[in-house]
Simulated assay, not measured.
Amino acid sequence: MKKKDKALLKRVRQIDIKSRKVVTELLGGEYKSVFKGRGMEFDEVREYMPGDEVRTIDWNVTARTGKPFVKRFIEEREQSLFFLVDMSASGAFGSAKQTKNEVAAELCGLLAFSAIKNNDRVGLIIFTDEVELFIAPDKGQHHVLRIIREILSFEPKGTGTRIAGALDYLGRMVKKQCVTFLISDFQDEDYDRQLKLAAYHYDLIAITISDPRELELPNAGLVELCDAETGEQILVDTASAQARKRFNTAAKAHRLEIRDQLRRLNIDQIDVRTDRDHVRDLVRFFRTREQRQTL
Rank of each mutant, 00 (worst) to 15 (best):
L262I: 01
A63I: 04
F83P: 01
D185V: 03
I125P: 00
T99L: 01
N219V: 11
R72G: 09
F83K: 02
H278P: 10
D58A: 06
G231S: 08
E257L: 12
P218I: 04
V22K: 08
G221H: 05
A112L: 08
D138S: 15
K139T: 06
D268G: 02
N118K: 09
D188T: 04
R246P: 03
E75F: 11
F42M: 02
T294K: 14
R55Q: 09
M173G: 10
K4Y: 09
F113N: 06
S153E: 08
A112P: 06
A63M: 02
Q194I: 02
Q98S: 11
T62A: 03
A105K: 05
R46D: 02
E229W: 01
D129Q: 08
Q98K: 14
T230C: 03
T99C: 00
G109V: 02
R77F: 00
K175Y: 00
F134W: 14
Y31E: 04
S95Q: 00
S95G: 04
L133H: 11
L195H: 00
I125S: 05
T208Q: 13
Q79M: 15
T238F: 06
Y191A: 05
F134P: 10
L215M: 14
L110M: 11
E257Q: 14
G140E: 05
R121S: 07
Q187V: 14
F73A: 01
L111D: 07
L133M: 11
Q261W: 03
Q293H: 12
D129W: 07
I270W: 01
S90W: 08
T238I: 05
E216F: 13
G91R: 15
L256D: 10
F69A: 00
I125T: 08
F42H: 03
E232R: 10
G37A: 08
Q293M: 15
L225Y: 10
F83L: 02
D260R: 15
Q141R: 13
A198D: 00
Q187D: 12
L225P: 07
D268P: 04
N266W: 13
F186R: 02
E41L: 09
L170Y: 01
D5L: 10
I57E: 00
V131P: 06
T56P: 02
R72T: 14
R213Y: 15
M173H: 12
I163R: 05
D43I: 08
Q14R: 10
E47G: 12
R146C: 07
K157R: 09
V122Y: 01
L9D: 15
L145V: 01
D277A: 10
L197V: 07
K32M: 13
C178L: 11
Y191G: 01
